[in-house]
Computed example of a mutant assay.
Amino acid sequence: MKRDLKRKTKIALEPRKQPRQERSSKVVDRILDAALILTREQGTGTPTTLAIAQRAGLSVGSVYQYYPNKEAILLDLARRWLGAFPKVIEKRIRVPRPTTRDAFRQEVRELFIDTSRLYLENANLMPVIEAITGNPDLRPIQNEYDEQIIALYAAWLRHVNPALQEDIANRLGIVMMEVGHVCRLVGLKKDRKTFDLLEDDVETMWIALVTPYLDLN
């Protein structure tokens, strides 16, 4: 059973109100876009609520109508980052099933191109992601996305080989997600060259791991 967020933590980090109208949604988008731009510009520093408001062209009071603090803004950004991965994996399930090893390698390459872009363009959000992972009150937020991503990896593998058993596909999905995420985090903390080399290594490991289960020519 998933552990619920402690009430005080949840209240402190949840958006104050959810946008119900298009105008409100645009305001939230402006806040989040401004926060993302500032996190990229400031490197390891985190932007203040005032700086976010100024970059978004809003008053601080307008920002506080939607978010109680800057941590809640960054957490909402992290949610959006995590929520981008299922869409990327779903693309691979919608394309025709690869039937050869070369075709599958190309599918993996395209997936890595798409997911790596998400990591590289949002590198300054990684401390937020790691904070979520290390905080027992916040970890359930990431767990929900992790379970969804594992299920999608498993569905992708079964798309390639419909005869693959579900429990095996899920096990492989866990390894694919965990190894890929951890290695990319390490690469981001080093430099771009290290990131690219680690990514190539992970891609090689993925293919070696799953190919025996896929019945490819």
Rank of each mutant, 00 (worst) to 15 (best):
L152Y: 00
L152S: 00
L74Q: 06
M1T: 15
E166H: 11
L82C: 06
W81T: 00
R101M: 15
D76N: 07
T39V: 06
E41A: 06
S59G: 15
Q165P: 10
Q42H: 01
P212N: 14
L118I: 14
W81D: 03
W206P: 00
P140T: 07
L50P: 05
I168N: 13
L38I: 01
V179C: 11
A12G: 09
T100R: 10
D114T: 00
T49C: 07
Q106H: 12
E178Q: 15
P136R: 13
R23A: 14
I37F: 14
A169K: 08
L198H: 08
L197M: 06
P136G: 13
D196H: 09
P127R: 02
L209H: 11
R79N: 09
R80P: 08
V27Q: 05
I129F: 00
V186Q: 13
E107N: 10
G180C: 01
R3Y: 08
E203M: 04
N161A: 09
L118R: 11
G43D: 10
Y67E: 04
P15N: 03
L214P: 04
E166D: 15
R109H: 03
A35S: 08
D33L: 10
G134C: 07
V179P: 07
H159K: 13
M177P: 04
R23M: 12
E130A: 07
V160A: 10
D201H: 15
R16P: 06
R80K: 15
L118V: 05
M126G: 01
W156Y: 07
E147S: 09
K91W: 09
P96I: 10
I93S: 02
K2N: 11
G180P: 02
K8I: 07
A72T: 00
E41L: 02
I174Q: 13
V186L: 11
H181F: 13
G57A: 14
R55Y: 02
R105S: 09
E90H: 10
A169N: 13
G83P: 08
Y213Q: 15
Q18W: 13
Y145S: 14
F195E: 00
K17P: 05
H159A: 12
K17I: 02
K87Q: 06
T99A: 14
K26P: 03
L5K: 08
F112S: 03
S59E: 10
V186C: 14
Y64G: 00
R92S: 13
V182S: 10
E14P: 03
P212K: 10
R55Q: 00
N170R: 15
V175C: 14
G61C: 04
E22S: 14
R97A: 15
A78H: 01
L152E: 02
L58H: 05
A34F: 03
E14S: 09
T100V: 06
K70P: 02
P98S: 07
S25P: 04
V63Y: 02
L198K: 05
Y119S: 05
T211K: 11
V128L: 01
A103G: 12
K6G: 11
L172K: 08
R79L: 05
K17W: 07
K87Y: 10
R16L: 03
E41M: 06
P127I: 05
T194H: 12
N161H: 07
P47T: 04
S116G: 13
S24V: 07
L82Y: 01
D33V: 15
K190S: 14
L120K: 01
T48V: 00
K87F: 04
R3H: 00
A208V: 12
D76Y: 06
W206G: 01
R105F: 04
A35T: 04
E71G: 09
L138F: 02
K91E: 11
I73S: 00
